[in-house]
């Protein structure tokens, strides 16, 4: 019964809340759909945190989405041992990179007084959840190999069963608890989406993925000497 709450009810609730609250926020507070960039306030550590984080996490999310969209093709891709190894090692490298990136982003928020001043409780909740999620993802990929193979035959059928409204939780309930935690934390992030700056994932157009870099610099007069 508890498993049903976790692996059937919770995902549906998370997605429903995300959709309804996401649309509602867009209708009522459109200009809050933003990453609320703090590049103006601190730019150096941001590069080493944000760039590895975003390129890493976008690639890894794509790798989580592809087996769901093209299960058969993904199976073909992994049928060669060398391809499997290359894919897994690349994934592990990217996963560790996101862990490093997110750690730097968190350290930056703590160490820069300016950025700390604009960081809300919701931001902290989001950052900690994201760090936990990628760290556990990396650990799972390392310890419970080969995730790209068994993901296709456990989590994917579970998610498809949810998509077609015929939930089948036996695909995931026998997995190690860390894997189950990773699945649930994924849906927790979906739940956080409309209430945090994570909404910036859906800021159309997506050209920022490939447009040339924009340098953001706060140009102002140097601080004047204080009068005695």
């Amino acid at each position: 019964m508890f498993d049903i709450v976790l692996f059937v009810v919770f995902p549906y609730v998370a997605v429903t809340v995300a959709i309804i609250s996401g649309i509602s926020r867009y209708r009522q507070n459109r200009f809050s759909y933003s990453s609320l960039s703090s590049q103006f306030l601190e730019n150096r550590t941001l590069f080493w945190g944000s760039v590895p984080w975003h390129y890493g996490v976008i690639t890894l999310l794509t790798a989580h989405l592809l087996p769901l969209l093209f299960p058969s093709l993904w199976g073909d891709l992994l049928s060669d041992r060398i391809r499997l190894y290359v894919l897994e090692v690349t994934g592990l490298g990217l996963a560790l990179m996101t862990v490093v990136g997110m750690t730097l982003l968190i350290v930056r928020r703590l160490r820069s007084p300016r950025v700390l001043a604009v960081t809300s409780t919701a931001d902290w909740l989001l950052l900690i959840t994201l760090l936990t999620q990628v760290a556990i993802g990396f650990w799972i990929a390392l310890v419970y190999r080969w995730g790209s193979g068994w993901y296709l035959h456990t989590s994917v059928p579970w998610m498809i069963s949810l998509l077609v409204f015929q939930p089948e939780i036996q695909y995931v309930t026998a997995l190690p608890w860390l894997v189950q935690f990773h699945l649930l934390a994924g849906f927790f992030l979906v739940l956080l989406f409309p209430f945090t700056r994570l909404v910036h994932v859906f800021t159309y157009p997506f050209t920022y993925l490939w447009r040339p870099i924009q340098v953001v610099i706060w140009n102002r007069r140097p601080p004047q000497k204080q009068r005695p």
């Binding site: 592990l92 490298g93 990217l94 390392l142």
Partner: peptide, 11 residues
């Protein structure tokens, strides 16, 4: 080791 190497390469 390969993960660390991959991260360093990407960064």
């Amino acid at each position: 080791a390969l993960s660390v190497l991959g991260t360093l390469l990407f960064m």
